[in-house]
Design a protein around this nucleic acid. Structure first.
Lengths: 337, 337
DNA sequence: ATAGGCTGTCGAAGCGCTTCGACAGAGAGT
DNA sequence: ACTCTCTGTCGAAGCGCTTCGACAGCCTAT
């Protein structure tokens, strides 16, 4: 391994000079800088991460805590993780991948050992047990998701309330008066991750404002569960002409079932999905959808964190504005045409 | 931050003794050990990662390089990544998440800086440009996937050749004489990731042995592309009664199209999928499939790496045995019944 | 001419840990 | 009784870097 000292010797300067060339924290004459850079290149020098971390008490690593379970929104998670990793690199950070498995202990370990300079937490529950720890440390952190109490925290999330409202609005505008909501799996509501409730809240309150009737049913992914759910909905409210689906695994089963029942999309029923763009585009019908901006969320989180690490940036809740893209799965309500 | 020295003082021993308690590299009397452990707990001590890395030249970090593109087998990637992270923890390692973006430079950076002790590479191409670097360093590494030349490398992968053979065998045993293979997207073959070719190879050679006719067509995910592909296959070989699908995004479109054409699964046609278990279970028909053992691959990779880091373990290619699970999408060929 | 302020460079201290060699004391073998 | 070996502990060196204060040399202002 090439060391700083070797580079210094090769360039005929002192070690500190090389260090200052690298960090830019003191002015260096152009000639010296060039000579040092030349030596660095010739010797193929890479600063030793451990030594750097020890001396500067900065590891240049951001910890990313992803949920352990792989049963939900996997593509969204993955996209966020990759966006975090690439954005972090552009700010000079690497990303440490932690799973939720260790829970709060992971936060203690990372904070205590100086392994990472900051953390990003995904899959935050409303009353997450990691939050007190985050509040109690001076290590910057950003949550992707929204807990119940956001005081002293920085959060990034899609504005799911507005998302719900947007879906109802779109369908109402097309003349639909009876809307069914195929929600997330019951387990998701039980876990209190918040986003599902917030969506529902947005859906309900806008429905109320617009005088639209709303029926909400949680639903596991998969065909069998969906068949039961759809049957029950149509039984209970035969006049239903609009559907909102939040569970991305439910999208395709829903479409298949509607087709099977002889209900054409979008002629007889309209479907709005809340899902990643890719899912909306690859479904059997190109779906009118509010996309989940995974990339943007990851990018945002890192940028907030980078700002905090540089001393700028306050605690703040950033709710990304939802955007509804009209595609081929929604149209005027049959009775209204 | 609590330091080793503070723990030592609190426990009334020297710093080195505390260090030896922590590492277990020298024998320590039970009473001393207990006293030290007590102090560690009371003070909430966590060893500083940077200092440790510097002094021992071991970072206890494994780098995981995931592909940048999120257009393919995302669930598989995610599952592998999570398995890697959790398995690594049980061996005392953390995981650094690198994206393919930086390419070979990332390998240089990580190796040169001592950021990680070892690497796991995913999405390895047949003639990957990172391979020479790996061979040229003494840093242990494991590939998930199989390059053309495996000399001096450790690789873990599903035995895709055997997987292909297994699929043909199963269909042949059921009496199918004309089998169509819906392959990966053309881009996958162009990228030479190897696994698609190896599967095809296995399919073809077993088909030849068993006297079964095989028709292979690459296919993008999505309904439109699939419609074209299926139409062309049935046009060219109307006697086709067996399908093998490798592209997990193609599974649902294929089923939908067959249904639409009035061909019942499994009465008229049989479908075997090569996909993660979850996909096979959640499809509209419970699919007979060879599952892609993502978890096992991740676990295996870490264990090989841990072995290497401890000095045990040779370079070796581990091909995981495929397993075919019969579900409801395959049955006797109609003419054979 | 001289004091004052820059600019660019250097030396040395120290970050918190691991690890090597040294060594005191206890037990075993003669 | 004396040496030899082992066990458990300690002190000190050093890992490779950052950073602080010092200072030489030069330029500008008086």
């Amino acid at each position: 391994m090439v060391t700083l000292a070797e580079v210094a010797q090769h360039a005929g300067v002192s070690a500190s000079t090389v260090s200052y060339v690298l960090s830019g924290k003191r002015s260096i004459s152009t000639t010296t800088r060039h000579r040092v850079e030349q030596s660095i290149r010739e010797l193929g020098y890479h600063p030793n991460a451990g030594a750097r971390a020890l001396a500067s008490s900065r590891s240049n690593i951001i910890a990313l805590m992803v949920p352990l379970r792989t049963d939900m929104y996997v593509p969204v998670m993955m996209e966020i993780a990759i966006a975090v990793a690439t954005t972090a690199r552009t700010h000079g950070y690497d990303v440490l991948l932690l799973t939720g498995e260790e829970g709060p202990d992971a936060v203690r370990r990372v904070t205590g050992s100086g392994l990472a300079d900051a953390m990003i937490l995904m899959d935050v529950e409303l009353d997450d047990e990691r939050l007190p720890l985050l509040r109690g440390t001076d290590q910057p952190s950003v949550l992707i998701g929204l807990p119940a109490d956001t005081s002293g925290l920085t959060c990034v999330d899609l504005d799911f309330r507005a998302t719900g409202a947007l879906c109802v609005e779109h369908l109402a505008k097309l003349g639909h008066r009876d809307i069914a909501v195929i929600g997330e799996a019951p387990a998701v509501y039980e876990r209190h991750t918040g986003f599902a409730e917030r969506t529902l809240d947005g859906l309900r309150s806008r429905a109320l404002e617009l005088g639209v009737r709303l029926l909400h049913r949680p639903c596991d992914g998969g065909y069998d569960a969906m068949a039961v759910t759809v049957a029950r909905i149509l039984d209970e409210r035969p006049s239903t002409t609009g559907f909102v689906v939040q569970n991305e695994q439910a999208v395709e089963p829903l479409l298949a079932l509607l087709r099977q029942q002889g209900r054409a999309v979008p002629e007889d029923v309209s479907v709005v999905a809340i899902c990643p763009e890719q899912v909306a585009l690859q479904a059997s019908v190109r779906l009118t959808s509010v996309s989940i901006p995974a990339q943007e969320m990851g990018r945002h989180a890192v940028e907030r964190l980078a700002a905090k690490l540089e001393g700028r940036g306050e605690d703040e809740v950033v709710l990304l504005e939802p955007e509804l893209t009209v595609r081929s799965s929604t149209g005027p309500a049959p009775s209204a045409s």
